[in-house]
Design a protein around this nucleic acid. Structure first.
Length: 488
RNA sequence: GGCCCUAUCGUCUAACGGUUAGGACGGAGCCUUCUCAAGGCUUAAAUCAGGGUUCGAUUCCCUGUAGGGUCACCA
């Protein structure tokens, strides 16, 4: 075919055997990005031909994961196309149709042996230190296929295959990889090897992006294309995502998490999308923070890496903060509100005004949204809504350990702040600054901040005073002053 | 083991065969500072090894080494 503009069609084809992890999602992202970049179509196909391994609820879980990441599919389990369903178990008729074609051509035949017999062949071959090839046991004449036996391909030609991979360039593999592989299992379901080729054909898939672990099987796939006499799509082998220590591919067994766990932990889908795109691909520029639309625009098959990359959570955290920072004020506030523990929301001090003033403080101290919850839980922000119980020990400024010397300073601060302008942290600062300079900044500001927050470590006193307002500020200064007065 | 693939700072990565091998995360240091953050600046840190080809290899070729993948009625 020599159509000038063949519309790009890509697909992401997970099997419903559980959740989606980092690696799977990255494959989905690349497929999606390329389709969108080329103005093409992206298909979500469910490869549920192994009924043993299937896990109930997986399909919904996979769709939810992709939706979270804002990866939308043009066709999917919930949106069939003119080609029919996107769920393989609902496409059995198609596989049968092409299987019959191959039988007619004499290129497929039922396996006459029992499982045990085949297993014995395999062991014999192994004992002789030779690779097991079913085609060495191929029967002379083929029986009729009644569906009770596995249907095998008769390899059309045993030869060395050479093919193009958009990432690896020219690849080749020898005849030892070619065999009479099973096309349709004895349970009536097709194998991956066969089903994906039929589906890609019927769905018009132009580019197959998948993990590079499939490279080894490529000659088998190509022999099926040849037997069917159909053209090859473009093969795009994606490098693996490795474990942190780079020792092996990240997999479920090595603690690869459900992608939705990252949602629970408070990561932004935009950050995750951005981050995953940058493992195994880069734009060739020094820009690293991207929106989805920018990535669609920049994405390019030729800059996909050959070698595997490790998943580095530290960098994800950083990227998440970058994305957090670019959020609009209203969107940010919405997220923070979800993260604040419920025990605060009923408090009379939980006012719109306080919340609004608190936002920039949280924004500058937060990398992932879970940090907000954590901060409240360890009382880092408790002072915002609750008067602190100030401990005299903390109130004591290191360089002037006599807590009694803080009392007159608190008193003077209260005096200054009584008439101060509370319209911004800066105006509060200017009200007390001269005094602080004169007495010693630490000597004045430390007790002030501690009186307001009860914390050794917190945002600066001016910001705190601004958030809680004049009334509470004065009351807290007074409370601390009183406490010192009672101290021995 | 056979076959296949890969190899630049700790990590993600850049570099038409000619660069002081660049950027980012993380690290260290400094600045800012009442504290903790945030921010700014500075800095350490890499071409797996050995042979070729070439005036010149991170880049091309070979060998070795290391790592990974795959050899199912799993995908």
């Amino acid at each position: 075919m020599n159509s000038i503009e063949k519309k790009v069609v890509t697909r992401f084809a997970p099997s419903p055997t559980g959740f989606l992890h980092i690696g799977g999602v990255r494959t989905a992202i690349f497929s999606y990005l390329y389709a969108k970049k080329m103005g093409g179509t992206f298909i979500l196909r469910i490869e549920d031909t192994d009924k043993e391994r299937e896990v109930a609820g997986s399909i919904e879980h996979i769709m939810e994961s992709l939706r979270w990441l804002n990866i939308e599919w043009d066709y999917g389990p919930d949106k069939p196309g003119t080609f029919g369903s996107c769920i393989q178990s609902e496409r059995l008729a198609s596989y049968k149709k092409y299987a019959l074609q191959l039988i007619d051509k004499g290129l497929a035949y039922p396996d006459p042996y029992t499982k045990e017999e085949v297993e014995k062949f395999r062991q014999d071959a192994e004992a002789q230190k030779k690779p097991f090839l079913f085609r060495n046991y191929r029967p002379e004449t083929f029986d009729e296929w009644d569906g009770s036996k596995p249907l095998r391909l008769k390899v059309p030609e045993v030869k060395r295959y050479v093919w193009e991979d958009a990432v690896r360039g020219q690849l080749e593999a020898g005849e030892e990889m070619l065999d009479d592989i099973v096309l349709i299992k004895s349970d009536g379901y097709p194998t991956y090897n066969f089903a994906h080729i039929i589906d890609d054909l019927e769905m018009g898939v132009t580019h197959i992006m998948r993990a590079d672990e499939f490279i080894a099987s490529q000659p088998k796939f190509l022999s099926i294309y040849d037997a069917l006499e159909i053209p090859y799509p473009v093969f795009v082998s994606l490098p693996p995502i490795l474990r942190d220590d780079r020792t092996k591919k990240l997999g479920k067994r090595d603690g690869a998490k459900d992608i939705l766990d990252y949602r629970t932990e408070g990561y932004l889908p935009e950050a995750m999308f951005n981050f995953l795109t940058l493992i195994g691909w880069n734009p060739g520029t020094e820009k690293e923070v991207f929106t989805k639309d920018e990535l669609i625009n920049e994405f390019d098959l030729h800059r996909i890496q050959k070698s595997g990359g490790a998943f580095n959570e530290e960098k994800l955290k950083w990227l998440n903060k970058e994305h957090l920072n670019s959020l609009s004020a209203s969107k940010y506030k919405e997220l923070v509100l979800k993260a604040i523990p419920a025990k605060y929301t009923g408090l009379p001090s939980f006012t719109e005004d306080r919340l609004e003033k608190l936002m920039p403080v949280i924004r500058e101290r937060t990398h992932i949204m879970a940090d907000v919850t954590t901060a409240f839980e360890v009382c880092e922000y408790d002072f915002v809504f609750t008067d602190p119980d100030v401990s005299l020990d903390i109130l004591r400024f290191k360089k002037d350990p006599d807590v009694h010397s803080a009392a007159p300073r608190l008193q003077h601060l209260a005096l200054l702040l009584e008439t101060a302008d509370f319209s911004s942290p800066d105006t509060i600062k200017s009200a007390v600054w001269d005094y602080a300079e004169q007495e010693g900044r630490g000597e004045v500001l430390w007790p002030m901040r501690v009186a307001l927050t009860g914390l050794e470590r917190s945002p600066d006193p001016f910001t705190v005073a601004y958030i809680i307002g004049q009334t509470d500020t004065l009351r807290r200064l007074q409370a601390a002053y009183d406490k010192i007065g009672h101290a021995k």
